[in-house]
Design a protein around this nucleic acid. Structure first.
Lengths: 345, 345
DNA sequence: TTGTAGGCGTTATCAC
DNA sequence: GTGATAACGCCTACAA
């Protein structure tokens, strides 16, 4: 009862009076085997609840049936973000659907990325990698590229062309800026996260361009880091402008947003004093006062697409177009009501 | 350059003028090898950036160095919950620290749990399992128990004693109820999620008992399912009471909370009309109006403990005490201010 | 201290 | 259509 000896294809072979080679064929739907023997074998397999050992299979096939998801920050800080929770959710579901196991990787310390990648690559833990590529990290991507390990990025890298899925950051930030302008806000400020994150650059550019196209003076503040000091410095800068901004476009969600809101609270700036829009749409925004109007990312679609693309690469199928770009939408809430102010330069 | 032939211990052996057995010893810090040869070997290993193939190692050792995390609902619905995001975050970090890889499992469809477990177990994908055990699922736990695969639950199972980490739900719900009573609320209602989730039973009991100990009449409503109809029916029931509840204790966070808040909004019940407390503390609660006072779970500690416990089980170390219970705390915000109402039966 | 050989469970390539 | 046999890369006795 207790010491249930492990079942192998050899046991199955004996019971079916065939050789293990034949069993293997039956198991893998390979040709070169009679329909009757196949059935007989599969019957026994079913009865004994047999499944081939994945390590043995991996060793023999040189394929693990694992795909890895790399979140290139310390788990503590970034996994907590609702964005990654959504992402993991869809990636997990899709890889299960495709009969791949999902492995989660995260560097032990910020800066231990090299070792992590080396480990993953050299020890053949996975058949391919999905990489959350927020930071511009050409070094490791090149390291990875010298390998034959297929990978797809979530988020683009400016200096490095590779398979990637991403949202259209330019259009997202541009259209939200236009949206605010259309609702009557003129002095719209953009509060950006660090430029080390490429998407922040794209968003800044789009904002800037849109403001200029509409003959408004851009009002930009950037936090150099993600800590609250840097962020509050940026907020400070924005609200020392004279006159004060009428609209505020907060360029990232999650903790960045929270920290910004904390700053505003500390500075006793009620959210209702300006029009506010945000990146990244989550349900809890419904319950803030006012509810925050937000750019909605199709996170689930991104995750799914990343898995599908990766698996095609793993199977050596040709995948045209390196980049797969998804459009965002705007979820309207009450934080950016229509106003009407004349703009005077 | 391109066809970089795979390095194996045999290459290393040749280069070091030793046999592969010796290389293996060096790699695994095994005794029976000279300090000089060991160094020579490790030097070469380092230089070539060599790492043993994990499949081969797994096959030979009968150990995968993987641990699995099972999230037993459809990933779509439950992974999105901030609770699981936190949990995954700490579990990922801790397993990386312990040199284990983390695999994420989730049933394809609700109800496909058996197949999932069978697959994981029979094909030896992992050395152990951490199982998010919210629903009472004795069937699969028994299935698992007949196996030698070690596992630890996150959350207790009433009919099944096994290694688990959990919060003290009884104390958590009881002390929050007492907290509300102490602040002057008498008619405190408890809004619970489905009893199929064991923690909901524990919380209900603690609430009920605390109310009775203080000579207050409990006012309980349960949602049978997690869909919005069930939840809104429960809310309905509570607010058809006469007189209306003075305090509302919402027994779960995440989507459950959101849905409840939606219902209140629809019924035009402003949150300020009653004292409100919630299970599960997240940063966004700061920004609701009013900020919601909440039970804080030590999620990170739970995840870490689960990993540590599992690894000890994997290593066949004795682990006394099946249950590892963590205390919760209360994060005070403004949704449950002190009032003072006489209680008349 | 070191080398050799056999095994881990599977798949693939041959003969038959 | 089927059955041996050799990989796959590593570990571990045991022998030298």
């Amino acid at each position: 009862m207790d010491k249930q000896k492990k079942i192998t294809i050899i046991e199955i072979a004996k019971l079916a009076n065939v050789s293990k080679g034949t069993v293997s064929k039956a198991l893998n739907n390979k040709p070169g085997i009679g329909g009757d023997t196949r059935e007989r074998i599969l019957d026994i397999v079913d009865k004994l609840d047999f499944q081939p050992d994945s390590a043995a299979r991996a060793l023999s096939n040189q394929k693990t049936s694992n795909i890895g998801l790399v979140i290139p920050h310390e788990a503590e800080s970034s996994l907590k973000n609702a964005y990654w929770a959504d992402m993991i959710s869809s990636i997990t579901a899709e890889s299960a659907k495709q009969n791949f196991n999902l492995m989660l990787f995260t560097p032990l310390r910020e800066g231990a990325l090299s070792e992590m990648y080396r480990d993953i690559i050299q020890s053949n833990k996975v058949d391919g990698l999905i990489i959350g590529s927020e930071l511009i990290d050409t070094v490791h991507l090149n390291q990875l590229n010298r390998t034959s390990l297929p990978f797809v990025l979530i988020g683009q890298n400016p200096e490095f062309h590779h398979h990637c899925v991403d949202i259209d950051n330019d259009h997202a930030a541009g259209s939200m800026t236009a949206y605010m302008l259309d609702r009557g806000y003129n002095r719209i400020a953009y509060l950006s996260g660090p430029r080390a994150y490429y998407y922040n650059r794209l968003r800044i550019n789009a904002y800037w361009r849109t403001m200029q196209e509409r003959d408004r003076k851009p009002l930009l503040a950037e936090a150099d880091e993600l800590d609250s000091e840097s962020i509050s410095r940026a907020v400070e800068q924005l609200f020392s402008e004279n006159p004060e901004p009428e609209g505020l476009f907060i360029g990232a969600g999650g903790n960045f947003l929270y920290t910004v809101l904390d700053c505003l609270k500390q500075k006793k700036i009620p959210l209702s004093r300006l029009g506010i829009c945000v990146f990244d749409d989550y349900r809890y925004l419904d319950f803030m006062e006012p509810g925050l109007t937000a750019v909605r990312q199709p996170t689930a679609a991104l995750g799914k697409a990343a898995v599908k693309r990766l698996i095609r690469l793993i199977n050596n199928e040709v995948v045209k177009d390196l980049n797969q770009i998804y459009e965002t939408s705007i979820t309207e809430r009450s934080s950016c009501p229509v106003i009407n102010r004349k703009y005077k330069t």
